[in-house]
C-alpha cells in the first residue's frame, strides 16, 4: 500500500511540474497552452540526446535552459499577440504549435520509442516497508517538492512574485501601478516552459520517449489545473497529488475505469465548486 501511495506521489509530482507551467502561463497571458505537452516532450528529447552521450545532469540543465528560451520566444512571438483574440484562436494556434513540434521531433528523432537512461547516481532501489522502491522515483518526488516549495516561497516573499500574483489576477490594474506586464510575462512563460522541460527530462526514465508522449500527461495536467482552480498554484499542487493517487490506485484496483476516474472527479468537483479547489475564475 505504501509503495502504491509513493507511486501516486511520483505521478502527482510530474503532473504538478507540468500543471504549474500551465497555471503560470494561463494566469498572465490567459492562454490555454495546448503545446505544453509538446514542450514537455521536446524537453525530454533534448535531455535524452545529451544523456545518451553520458552527460545525464548536463542534459537536465541544457533542456531546462533551452526550454526557457523557447518559452521566451513563444511569449514574445505568439502569446503576447494572442491575448487580444478569442480563446478559440489561442486554442487553435497552440494546437498548431503542438503539431509542428511533434513533426519536428518525428523528423529529428524518428517515431520509434526510445529508452531514457537513469543516471548512475540514482540507479538501484531502497527498501521501504520491506519492499524495494527505485531511488530514481524518490528523486522525482524530491524534485517536485523542491519546485513546489521554491515556487511558493518565490511567489510569496519576493517583489517579482507579488507582481506575478497581482498580474495573474488583473493585468490591467497591475500595469497601472507601473509594472511592465509584458516583461513579467516573458519571465513567467519562460519559467513555465522551463518547468515543462524539467518535467520532461525527469519523466524520461519513467516513460518511453515518443513524439506523442506529452499528450496523455497533458490531459491529466489540464484536469489538475481545472480541479485546482484556474490560476491557483496551491490548488494545482493539491489536485496533482489527488490525481496522482487516483491514477495509480485506479490502475491497480479498478483498471477498467482508470482512464475515466480523473474525468469523473473533475465533473464532481466542478458541480460542487465551479471555480475548482482554490480558483476564483470559472
Amino acid at each position: 500500500m505504501l509503495i502504491q501511495i509513493l507511486n501516486g506521489i511520483v505521478y502527482g509530482g510530474l503532473l504538478y511540474l507540468l500543471a504549474v507551467g500551465l497555471v503560470l502561463i494561463f494566469g498572465l497571458r490567459e492562454v490555454v497552452n495546448f503545446a505544453h505537452g509538446a514542450l514537455f516532450m521536446i524537453g525530454a528529447y533534448i535531455g535524452f540526446s545529451i544523456a545518451a552521450m553520458g552527460y545525464w545532469w548536463s542534459g537536465l540543465l541544457v533542456s531546462v535552459f533551452a526550454m526557457a528560451l523557447v518559452g521566451c520566444a513563444l511569449d514574445a512571438a505568439v502569446f503576447s499577440t494572442l491575448r487580444k483574440h478569442d480563446h478559440i484562436v489561442t486554442v487553435l494556434v497552440t494546437f498548431g504549435i503542438l503539431l509542428i513540434l511533434e513533426t519536428v521531433v518525428t523528423k529529428v528523432w524518428g517515431k520509434a520509442y526510445l529508452t531514457y537512461p537513469v543516471p548512475p547516481l540514482l540507479a538501484g532501489t531502497v527498501s521501504i516497508g520491506g519492499s524495494p522502491f527505485p531511488i530514481y522515483r524518490l528523486f522525482v518526488i524530491a524534485v517536485s517538492v523542491a519546485v513546489a516549495v521554491s515556487l511558493s516561497l518565490w511567489l510569496r516573499y519576493t517583489r517579482t512574485g507579488l507582481y506575478i500574483r497581482a498580474a495573474s489576477t488583473d493585468a490591467r490594474v497591475t500595469s497601472m501601478q507601473g509594472i511592465n506586464v509584458d516583461r513579467l510575462s516573458l519571465i513567467v512563460v519562460g519559467l513555465g516552459t522551463a518547468l515543462a522541460g524539467l518535467s520532461g527530462v525527469v519523466a524520461g526514465p519513467l516513460l518511453s520517449l515518443s513524439p506523442t508522449m506529452g499528450n496523455y500527461i497533458l490531459i491529466d495536467s489540464f484536469i489538475v489545473v481545472v480541479i485546482g482552480g484556474l490560476g491557483s498554484f496551491a490548488g494545482a499542487f493539491i489536485a496533482a497529488l489527488l490525481i496522482g493517487q487516483i491514477h495509480n490506485f485506479g490502475a491497480v484496483y479498478l483498471p477498467w475505469a482508470a482512464t475515466v476516474l480523473p474525468f469523473m472527479l473533475m465533473v464532481g468537483i466542478l458541480i460542487w465548486r465551479p471555480t475548482g479547489f482554490a480558483g476564483s475564475r470559472t
Binding site: L162, A166, Q177
Partner: peptide, 19 residues
C-alpha cells in the same frame, strides 16, 4: 477601485511602490 482580491491589504499597498 481596482483592489486585487487575492492580495492582502498590505500587498495591495506594496504594489504601489513598483515604480
Amino acid at each position: 477601485r481596482g483592489i486585487l482580491p487575492n492580495l492582502t491589504v498590505e500587498e495591495n499597498l506594496l504594489l504601489g511602490t513598483a515604480t
